[in-house]
Structures are given as C-alpha cells and as structure tokens.
Design a protein around this nucleic acid. Sequence first.
DNA 1: CTCTTTGCAAAGAGTTTGCAGGGTG
DNA 2: CACCCTGCAAACTCTTTGCAAAGAG
Lengths: 133, 133
Amino acid sequence: MEVKRKNSKKRTAILNALSSVKDHPTAEMLYAALKPEIPELSLGTVYRNLSILADEGLVVNVAHVAGQERYDARTDPHAHFVCKHCGQVIDVELPDMMTPLYAQVSEETGCVAESYKLSFNGLCENCNRKLTN
Amino acid sequence: MEVKRKNSKKRTAILNALSSVKDHPTAEMLYAALKPEIPELSLGTVYRNLSILADEGLVVNVAHVAGQERYDARTDPHAHFVCKHCGQVIDVELPDMMTPLYAQVSEETGCVAESYKLSFNGLCENCNRKLTN
DNA sequence: CTCTTTGCAAAGAGTTTGCAGGGTG
DNA sequence: CACCCTGCAAACTCTTTGCAAAGAG
C-alpha cells in the first residue's frame, strides 16, 4: 500500500539542486552542494530521498561510474556519455530510437520494456586532448 | 608500461566459465560455479582476474544490478534486458544502431566514443506473469 | 495525535588490497 | 631468479538501516 508523503524541505531542496544542474551528480556531490545552504543536512537523508524520488519517478539513475551512482532529474529518454578517464557524465542529444523498439524487444524476448539506459563510453574532449598529446 | 602476463589456469578457467554461459553472472556466481571444480579458488582471485580480463578487452561489464556488477565474455556490441524484479540479465538481439553514431556523438559533444552500453529495463516474461495475474 | 522525516552512527554489501608463499618462463 | 599469480583476511567505499527526536497534517 502507498505511503502518504509529507512535505519535506530537504527532499524538495535535493530535487531542486538536482534539477538545476546538468552534471549528473552522485549522492555525495549533492550533499556537498547543499550542505552550506542546509548545514543540518546529513548524507543519509540525501540517499534516502534520492531513493524516494526515484521510486516516484522524479529522478533517475543514469549511470554507475567508479562505484558510484549518478542521478538525473531529467527523466525523458536521452543518452549519456561517460568519460572513462575523469568519470564525467554528459547528456547526448540523439533522437530517441529505443522507445519505438519496445514492442520488438517484447516480441523477441517476452520481456516488457519500460525504460532503457544508453550510455556511450570513451574519452571526453578534455581528457582526449590531455592523453593524446 | 605493460605487464607481461603469465599463464594462469585460474584466469583461463574464469574466462572459459564466463564464455560458456549466457546469464551474465556476477563475480560471486562465477566463483560459486567454479569452486567445485577448483576448490582452492578464492573470491579475490575471481575479482582480480575479471578486472585483468576487462583491461584486456576479453570481458565486459554489461550492467550493474542490485549493487553487483554483471560480466559478459561476449564483447561484440549488443543490447541487454534487465528485469527489475528478479535481476535477470538477458541478451537482446537488435541490429547495432549505435556504433554508426559515434561520429555524430563526437560532433555533438567533442567526446570520442569507443563503446556503448544499452540496456532495457522492465519485467521479464516470468516476473510479468507472476506480478500481473 | 499519528505518521513521516531526519541526524547520527553503526551495520551491510560488494570489491579491492597487502602480504607471504607458490608458480611460470 | 625475476616477476606474475594466488589465498587469506583485513581494509575500503558506497549505501542502507535502526533508533530516538523533530516536523507535518
């Protein structure tokens, strides 16, 4: 059964912080960003609320980089690029080619697709320059 | 500088075990599968060798499910389906539509793509039947 | 009041690492 | 005989959880 959510300033602040940023932060990055503004904030609360927000579909895990989960408040289907050197995660604007394939996936596998994750891997512009000089 | 690899029966066994299976096992699953056959095997060795094999490109991380990394010895680009209920990971045979887009990704972002990960998410056939009855 | 949310600290889970001994070329 | 590989256990990192107090409706 469903839990009735109450108003939570912390949760709202976490969602706002995530929405206002495009670098797909980790829980710790969000914590560090909010801490100055909300000194009583604790890291456990960030984890807890990210999990709640993800359940509610307001937030999405876009990648797992160097052992840490990366979050995104942009929930429309879009791709990402993950730099294998610096770990940076950036948006890639490609037309959504995968959602139209859900029916085909279902036909092939019997599985019911509801979402997908697409991430490219390699070197970002900076790291490529630095490492290829 | 490069390390000169020596022959290692354990590493070979791990790669063989992974190659002979299509369920994208975790390190622990591989360990459990090999243990009867190689009783002196230790879990640390499985982790160490999976990491070496990944460096060499013989093995790939295809997904991170329920906090565990899933490995695959099939290294050609292909998609996966991850069941959000049972955590099963299965291959999806779709034409590779992403590799041809590397140039476009580079143009858009400046990043040099070398690989990609595509995974669909939802309920597998069994879980869907069980949960939708 | 009742039930959710939070801080804090401890617990958990998965993975990595140091070390001493064994194996390979 | 130099250097890689391994078992074992401890260490590490990220994330989750229990509890008592604070906050929302």
